[in-house]
Design a binder for these strands. Structure first.
Lengths: 370, 370
DNA sequence: GCTAAATGTGGAAACGTTTCCATAGGGAGG
DNA sequence: CCTCCCTATGGAAACGTTTCCACATTTAGC
């Protein structure tokens, strides 16, 4: 309220004055660089302590022409996969004395470019980027042109750009193979933002190829919006309109669980009437009933690896070098994947769907709540 | 490999030379501050464009004695509540031209203090903090001493420090009231990190009070570790050891869902044999069967509000001022909360638990997988 | 006891920017 | 015609640091 004891920043000059020496000496002592006698060293250290001196990183960065910060550009934090990856990144950066600057792009390439520009102005040491679209990506071109080190996360373009990512194509193929193994013939691929996401498209490619190789029909595709309540409605519509499909590959676990929920709303049982396989391997998938069959990945680990790779490129000597190979994944069996319905179950399913089509969606909800 | 066409930073000096004027003029033009003739303005703008000039934010920050960055200190990104909040923060900062510096503390106060120190060295304009323990918190004391603006998120100490948070005590009380309304008498409180989290303790306080006011027994408390697989085991043990409890309040939705899953493993049904109420209102809670009864909060909104409050304190004129009141929450009914088991159900439940105690936990898993 | 090297120190420049100040031209008002 | 003020401009200082360099002192080698 009264005494404006405005805190005054204490600089290296203040320390020098107090220690009775030049600022160069202070800098050397505090940075443990160059020569210094034990005597002055002690005086400087004492002075710094007395005054509560802390380096001003801005001054340092200006002189050193760079910061100890890494810019990170990801689509969103709502997706737990990205959040986990970020946690992995943060852990590694922290361990190596780097700071994390974060921006979310919401899959908007314009936004992405702005973010990269801002990071460059802030003179980040490097960037970690997850983008929706690799090909002709303006942000990446900018970084290449300026020769700024960067590391890609979750992105890779087969035979061209490589980053820390699972082989989405191979993983998608694996899902197709598994579905075939259970005897499914007619499958669906459910995605959010298929058009704007390389990753989703790669998974679909692999899945398609597997369908072809193992004699399944070409998958029926649906792209749903990600506003949760709307998603449910869209998924219900999709299920109703495609009663012939017996198994679904969802582009991530959340969609997979949404699909199972939508099926439940329609009175359908998983895996009795339909099978569902997800992607990512989020923990929740193990807590639900039936447990979700999915491709398990390690986003946190991947984030860590991407950070380590970047740090290595920056000549930081990290504790243990990250593996060179692409990120591992594995197929997890789960109760949500079973044999396709046969005979009685099919009849049951069709009966249920027929009933549903007689209700408005609102009606369905009401009926199920009763 | 060969031509080292090392990119050379272009500075305001280069622009000045090219435009044939002084650097002061360039600065004025590019910042639209002070006077400039139309003629020079055009020359400078053209020169800047030709050379691809971009401001060096370090130089700017040094002169201006501060950055346009906000430091954010949260416990973890794995908890989707924090991730959502961060998304809200990021959105607002982005909208107002501020950058986000992020650190996760994993509830470690030492780590928290280090992070705050680093942010101060980087001359952030302000901080947003979520801490486990408010009382006597060293980081906050440091910030007060240095007179650095900060905004608390998810924390508040009734009658003392205030931040953007729901009234955890009142919300906990509300849960107790609801459980009483359903006729429960003996309840449990399940938490991770109870000792290290003010929030969890406040929820418990409110819950306890409600139990007292509505004539329930004092709640039985259990603290579980957060390593998922271990959690399941611990929860199973807890359920077995407390067969008399009919309802559980979990300190967050994830624990609530874990508890339901653990119950399922034991053969128990929700809400037939036990009721469960969560906290947070994560989306997943609506996708599972039965839907989770919980306290619904708006972490993303809260993050946004905390950012806006901070920006206002920094005299940024934000678009619309955040609400002054504490963050809203609401109780959501869900299938996971029902009446306590009576007669036949109790017998059934005891029978199931008796069977379980005959198996090792490993045995349980095997039995259920079969 | 002499040079050469090793050790210790501080002045000053530099990093890229903003901004104070001095200077100067031009128009208006007396 | 002389002030005065307004517009326009660039030189130079300042922000806090690191580091080059020149200089001083000690130690070592003969």
């Amino acid at each position: 309220m009264s005494g404006s004891s405005k805190y005054r920043e204490v600089t290296i000059k203040d320390v020098a004055k107090r220690a009775g020496c030049g600022i160069a000496t202070v800098s050397r002592v505090l940075n443990k660089s160059g020569f210094s006698s034990k005597e002055t060293r002690e005086k400087v250290l004492a002075a710094a302590k007395d005054l509560g001196f802390e380096f001003n990183e801005i001054g340092r960065s200006l002189k050193r022409k760079g910061t100890q910060a890494i810019g990170c550009v990801i689509p969103s934090l709502i997706n737990p996969v990205f959040a986990s990856a970020l946690q992995g990144i943060q852990d590694e950066l922290d361990k190596n004395g780097y700071q994390l600057l974060l921006t979310c792009t919401d899959y908007d390439l314009k936004h992405e470019l702005d973010a990269v520009r801002t990071f460059l102005q802030k003179k980040v040491a490097g960037l970690i980027i997850t983008t929706g679209r690799l090909e002709g990506n303006a942000s990446l071109n900018l970084l290449k042109e300026r020769e700024i080190p960067y590391s890609l996360l979750f992105n890779y373009l087969p035979g061209s750009v490589s980053g820390v990512a699972v082989d989405n194509r191979a993983a998608g193929y694996e899902v197709g193979r598994r579905l075939a193994g259970f005897g499914h013939k007619a499958c669906g691929y459910v995605s959010v933002n298929l058009s704007g996401s390389d990753r989703s498209q790669q998974r679909l490619q692999g899945f398609r190829q597997a369908c072809e190789d193992f004699g399944l029909n070409a998958p029926t595709i649906v792209e749903v919006s990600d506003a949760s309540t709307k998603t449910q409605d869209e998924l219900c519509d999709y299920l109703c309109a495609n009663s012939g499909l017996t198994a679904f590959f969802a582009s991530n676990d959340f969609i997979a669980l949404s699909l199972i929920s939508a099926a439940r709303r329609l009175g359908l049982r998983v895996p009795r009437h339909l099978s569902v396989v997800g992607f990512d391997g989020i923990e929740m998938g193990l807590l639900v009933d039936p447990p979700l069959a999915t491709i398990v990945t390690d986003p946190r680990g991947m984030g860590g690896v991407s950070a380590l790779r970047l740090l290595m490129e920056l000549n930081v000597d990290v504790e243990n070098a990250p593996p060179e190979a692409e990120a591992p994944y594995s197929f997890r069996e789960g109760g949500s994947l079973g044999r396709p319905p046969s005979g009685k179950s099919v009849a049951e399913k069709l009966q249920l769907l027929r009933q549903c089509s007689e209700f408005s969606r609102h009606g369905i909800a009401e009926r199920n709540e009763a």
